[in-house]
Design a protein around this nucleic acid. Sequence first.
DNA 1: GCGGAAACTTACCGATGGGTAAGATATCAG
DNA 2: CTGATATCTTACCCATCGGTAAGTTTCCGC
Lengths: 216, 216
Amino acid sequence: MARGFDTPPHDKAFANRRRDPATKREAVLTTAAQLFIEKSYGRASMNDVAERLKITKPALYHYFQNKEQILLECYRLGSALIEETLNEIASHGGTGVEKVSAFIYSYANVMTINFGRCVMRLDEGDLSEDARIEVRKYKRKIDRRLRSFIQDGIDDGSITACDAKLAAFSIAGALNWICQWYEPEGPLSPEEIASQFARTLTQGIARRQRSQSNGH
Amino acid sequence: MARGFDTPPHDKAFANRRRDPATKREAVLTTAAQLFIEKSYGRASMNDVAERLKITKPALYHYFQNKEQILLECYRLGSALIEETLNEIASHGGTGVEKVSAFIYSYANVMTINFGRCVMRLDEGDLSEDARIEVRKYKRKIDRRLRSFIQDGIDDGSITACDAKLAAFSIAGALNWICQWYEPEGPLSPEEIASQFARTLTQGIARRQRSQSNGH
DNA sequence: GCGGAAACTTACCGATGGGTAAGATATCAG
DNA sequence: CTGATATCTTACCCATCGGTAAGTTTCCGC
């Protein structure tokens, strides 16, 4: 996965008045997502978005009904990214712990992409009731999927007996928090983060002394 | 630790005009913290805080210079709570993994208290530059402390060789995320969360099959 | 190359919310 | 009891920001 591929200077899309709504809409979206991550949704004004695209505020309303629709679409795109990887993992098969491990790896990577970050970093409270319900549905689906991977592992013996719900919260928390501290220009690459998290969150960090209850 | 002890109806403090600035100031603070958690800092207006205390907005300015000072104090109180437990753990001694485990347990509990939640859930971006620097200092201190516990464990052999920085991010992430999903009236008690997290974040969730590199 | 539509700008509105000025009212020391 | 002071209220200011109305400019099919 190329680093920072979703953060080019998108003002090029509005360099002329060529009629190409699709790419212009996309440029608005990526710029907005980036600003939402940089400054938060509340502090990123429509003027900020417009300014970065070198246009004026009302022009934005040719591509989106209102600010909330932009936010909602960010959630949708990010959720779609996550769901993609979820389906891929589920179809690949393997033991429970392998699926969890694969989930952690993929999810960690998504959390370093702006749209992915939006899903878990931005505040649902900024959405209207309907939109919030929609977004919650996406999130719940992700949570349920992770939980089912864990449950698969408990069932097939690859994961130790534990509360799957709490385990999912723990893993998801570690992953979701990535979008709070990750910096594209920082020293840690998405791959490093993803692989280490996949290891420590499944295997733990404690050194194994006594050989513990194996098999069943 | 009693559940929900920090969320009584604090409007009692302003029932009359008795001159007791200390308790009234505290009432403002706890009410504000609760509202910040409920609605976020941005959406919780000074009027909201006043309304819940059954006073009017300008009265608040007798106890705090401005809204940001309230926020800053929430950060300070929460950070103090965390630092307390950190010092206690460090003084107790034990192996690295024991200290990490104790850290997880205590920290998870703090994340279920409003002031503790404020520290990791609210947005630093709402603070002025100076205040943000102060808060970052608190957070960095916590992070460094956890990292040192992990490093202790690597040194004393109780923790497997790993990147202490990433391990700390992972654990802190799982814990910090608690303040996003925890509900005081929910089915999970702070103790349950704390103890399970302490176990799975150190021991992992994967079942141990082969007895792995023991002793040293 | 021209006409109509899309793309975009200038100028503006109204709501919200932090914060203040100035006055009213309760408290409490002496 | 009384006056000085802390406490609190009413009324207001103003900056910000989402969103719109109406007009201007560019595009592009015909």
